[in-house]
Design a protein around this nucleic acid. Sequence first.
RNA 1: GGGGGCUUAGCUCAGCUGGUUCAGAGCAUCUGCCUUACAAGCAGAGGGUCACUGGUUCGAACCCAGUAGCCCCCACCA
Length: 796
Amino acid sequence: YGGIILDQLKKLGASCDWKRTRFTMEEDLSNAVIDAFIKLHKDGLIYRGTKMVNWDPAGKTTLSDEEVIYKETQSNLYYVTYKFTEQTKKTFNNEVGGLQVATTRPETIMGDVAICVNPNDERYKELIGKTVIVPVVNRVVKVIADDYIDIEFGTGCLKVTPAHDENDYKIGEKHNLEIIDVLDDDGKIHPRAGAYAGMDRFACRKQIVKDLEEQGLITKTEHIKNTVGHSERTDAVIEKKISTQWFVNMQEYLNRYPQVLSSVMDDEIKFHPPKFKNVYKHWLENIKDWNISRQLWWGQRIPAWYDNEGNYVVAKTESEAILLFANHTSKTTLKDNSNLVERHVNLDTRNVQHSTGVKNSPPKIRLTQDPDVLDTWFSSWLWPISVFDGFKEGDKKDFNYYYPTNDLVTGPDILFFWVARMVMAGYAFCGEKPFRNVYYTGIVRDKLRRKMSKSLGNSPDPLELIEKYGADGVRMGMLLSSPAGNDILFDESNVEQGRNFCNKIWNAYRLIEGLKTVSDDKISEEILASNKLSALWFEMKYQTAVNDILNLFKDYKLSEALMTTYKLIWDDFCSWYLEMVKPVYGQPINEITQLVVKHNFERVLTLLHPFMPFITEELFHLLHDGKPDKPMIVTVFPVAKEVEANFDDKALGIIPEIRNIRNSKGLSPKVAFELVVKTENENNYKIWENIICKLANVSAITYNSAKPEKYLSCLIGADEVYIPFAEAIDEAEERRKMQEELIYLEGFLISVDAKLNNDRFVSNAKAEVLEKERQKKADALEKIEKLRKSLAQNTN
RNA sequence: GGGGGCUUAGCUCAGCUGGUUCAGAGCAUCUGCCUUACAAGCAGAGGGUCACUGGUUCGAACCCAGUAGCCCCCACCA
């Protein structure tokens, strides 16, 4: 894809020495691929074999098993009569005078070389060894027996066509049957079929059915569902075909490099999410040899060279191949591991001498290179190595530094094609894993879980989205909805949320930058103290968030890391911290506080930068008057620090409580009022007094005085707060609420007590759990006591 | 046919080795606010028998078994 990407970049106006870039990429990659092939061949892991392969008649190429998509299809199952021969009829006959054979592919009848039944099938026992006549071509074939046959399916008789079906091929091998390939490479009937020559396979199917029906040889047609292989590229129906091609012997490969499986299972290579480990394992355990020959016009030529007698060698270049032929003294052996037969490449030096005529002069041999190219994944699997020139001799600085890499980010749909094979290549060529982590992204779907597709018109235009919501807004919207390994359900409202977030951040900047500053001595002691406290408070929130975010990154929970950052900025930074330090309208802020606020703003922007690079970079520059020492993208991401919270911020809980009461009682937030707090720790409130007054619009707080008339009371932790309420208080309602809470707490206490009084709990539970329960009990008791007191007071 | 996974608020999802101040988040919804950073906003609130049934346990959203529904991967049923 490199070329495509570079072309696109070029179109967009990027400038670079394109030609050179492309040239070196291709040359190095090409060398790496050839080296890899030669090594594996030398190690006996690549062999040339004659096997059943997948053939795509539309693309005119073979395909690996992974490139074949099986689709459930409605098919016709035809019951065709194969007449008995006269000889058979002497000992066995029936009403139709033949065997009924069920097939979905009548066009392959010309390739039939036997009829197979199950040896235990009572119906046909006597027929085994007898003969029947294949229709259309009138070939006399034997009835043979094999366990493979399912007695239940169709009539229990299978027409054996070794050239066009893998199982038939195996049966054919076992029973030594002839192979008659009736199709040519285009999917048309080959003249050797003896009939229908030149006809397209599907047209032929129709025609044969018609002809057989006319002859009364089709007794029944059933509609069945079966799976039919289609080409991933051309969507054409795949044909199975016997062909001599190059394969990687996977079984032997895995025997030799057991780390391919174990590294993933032992988390040496970590999968995120880990559920794909099992998928990986299952695939490897059922793996078949990898067909790497492709009959395509583009791609890496297979480095195999043939003479005109079918002998061949594997070599990097033609001249090397010629030398190999010429210097050949002993026989080369190739192991065909699929059936453990040794094949000898017949290299007779006589050929060489004949063609040269003169001894001791360079041999003249006409060689042809294999016309096939390698499967594209045969170069892709080398990517982690070849991208750092790992196959090159000499200086491997980059390779040594970068290999193994940290993270591979990819879709689970190419787990087999690519991920697994990169692991294989890593161990075979470098003796080491190619990467430490694999992060599987989801597939983007619409919110109805449909895949994005042009025909459905459900794929949004990213450029339009960026136009509408901004690049960072789009990024944020996508990232927010992509937990690892799950599909991304694209919903424009997520992107909208991203846009709103950008807006929020931008406005925070406007506030911070717009503040008037004065020196500290112009600001009251109280405000200075509370600003200092606010900074400490935010420091605690910030450190906690950094800690959480780093842990989430460690677990590759990117969307959660983003959400944590989002809440840190929106809630903690904007809604709380900025509100705490924001001066009354028109008033200035002290210089130090503004510096600290700016610093904190910069810090939260740094946290956000990996997710939203543009707005954060822009603001970073603005915060530094357009001239920061270095851009944000190269600043260091924060590390977690221990934060000692040497103060208690429980008192802040009073703020939402007051707001809630205002809301539910219809008290305007504009009307300030005085507050009475009953507490044992007056100081906990006193330090926050300024902030509480500002954020909850309280004019003054008094401590530990009796509850004034017309005041509401509520519990904050173990403390009581009295709030003035001008209108008549619904005493009954208040009591009911308190009573409800009391009942809940008492019930809660009972359940805690039940546990603590249970010997088995006390003896079995961990010490921490036990301690927690005791604390719960103490807290509940304290609250209950307060509530009871309060209820008693109200009665008075 | 084989394998893997899922089922928690209206939606999308967190919930680590079981501990009940542990049923959570964001969005959406509802209520009140045009409070000079931000209505693309502020403040607050209401939503759940953790698919179902049984079991193990002092204790289950979490462990086990079964049932139902959904998704994915693999596979040669003519």
